[in-house]
C-alpha cells in the first residue's frame, strides 16, 4: 500500500500539515499591500510639501524647517523626521523583501517559458511592477543622495548643506534639463506603480468583493496615480519653464 496521499511511485508533493495563515503567500501579499499603502500615504504628504514651492522661497523653506521641529517639545528636534525615516525604511525593507520572495516563487512556478504568450486582460502597468519597482528603488537612492544626505547641487557642483536652503537646491536641480527628465521618468514609473499597486493592495486586502467595488477601486487607483505623479511633476516642470525660480 502506497502512501495514501501521493500517486504511487511518484515524487509529487504530499499534503501540508499544520498550515499557518501567516506563512502563506497571501500573508506576504498582505505585507506587500500594507507597506505599499504606507508609501501611498507618504507620497501624498511629500507631494503636498513639494507643491509648497509654488508659494515661494520662504514658505517652502519654512515648511521644510518646520518638519524638523514637528512634535517638539514632545519629540526631540528631528524626532518626527527620524520616526518617518524609520517607518519608511521598515516599509521599504518589507516591500522589497516580499517582492523578491514573491518574484522568486513566480519564477519557480514557471520554469519553462512559453514560445508565444499573449497578455490578455492585463493592463501594462501590472506587468511593469517588478521593473518599475527596481527603477523606483534606484531613483529613491539617487533622490536621497540628491536632496537629503548628499545634498548634491548638480548646477554648482557643491555638496553638503552649505547653503542651508532647500528651495534653492530644488530650483538649481530642476534647472538642469536631464535632472528633470530623470525625475519625470521616475514619476511616470511611480504613476504606473500606483495605478496597479493601489488596486492590487485593495484586492489583496479583500476589499473588492464585487464587480462594482472592483470598478470603483480601479478608478480610484487610476485617479491617485494621475494626481500623485502629476502633482510631483508640476514643480520640476514649473522650474524648468521658469514659472518658479
Amino acid at each position: 500500500m502506497a502512501n495514501p496521499v501521493t500517486t504511487p511511485g511518484s515524487k509529487r508533493p504530499t499534503l501540508v500539515d499544520g498550515a499557518r495563515a501567516s506563512r502563506t503567500s497571501i500573508a506576504l501579499k498582505l505585507l506587500m499591500a500594507l507597506s505599499g499603502l504606507a508609501f501611498v500615504g507618504f507620497v501624498l504628504g511629500h507631494m503636498y510639501g513639494n507643491l509648497k514651492a509654488f508659494s515661494g522661497h520662504d514658505a517652502f523653506n519654512e515648511y521644510a524647517y518646520h518638519l524638523k521641529e514637528l512634535g517638539e517639545p514632545m519629540l526631540p528636534h528631528m524626532g518626527f523626521i527620524w520616526i518617518m525615516r524609520g517607518g519608511l525604511l521598515l516599509a521599504l525593507i518589507i516591500h522589497v523583501a516580499c517582492a523578491i520572495e514573491l518574484t522568486r516563487r513566480a519564477r519557480k512556478a514557471r520554469p519553462v517559458q512559453y514560445v508565444v504568450k499573449k497578455h490578455t486582460g492585463a493592463i501594462p502597468a501590472s506587468r511593469l511592477m517588478r521593473w518599475g519597482g527596481l527603477t523606483l528603488f534606484l531613483f529613491i537612492v539617487w533622490h536621497l543622495v540628491n536632496f537629503t544626505f548628499g545634498k548634491v547641487n548638480v548646477e554648482t557642483g557643491e555638496t553638503g548643506d552649505a547653503a542651508g536652503d532647500p528651495y534653492n537646491l530644488l530650483v538649481d536641480t530642476f534647472d538642469v534639463w536631464w535632472m528633470t527628465l530623470i525625475y519625470l521618468v521616475a514619476m511616470a514609473m511611480l504613476g504606473a506603480h500606483l495605478h496597479h499597486g493601489v488596486w492590487s493592495s485593495m484586492q489583496t486586502l479583500g476589499l473588492t468583493g464585487t464587480a462594482e467595488a472592483r470598478a470603483r477601486v480601479k478608478t480610484i487607483s487610476f485617479a491617485l496615480a494621475i494626481v500623485i505623479a502629476g502633482g510631483f511633476s508640476l514643480v520640476p516642470i514649473a522650474v524648468l519653464t521658469g514659472l518658479i525660480d
Partner: peptide, 12 residues
C-alpha cells in the same frame, strides 16, 4: 506547497 506562484492581481 505545490509550487504555484503568488497572485499579483494582474487579471490574466
Amino acid at each position: 506547497h505545490e509550487g504555484f506562484g503568488g497572485c499579483t492581481n494582474i487579471g490574466e
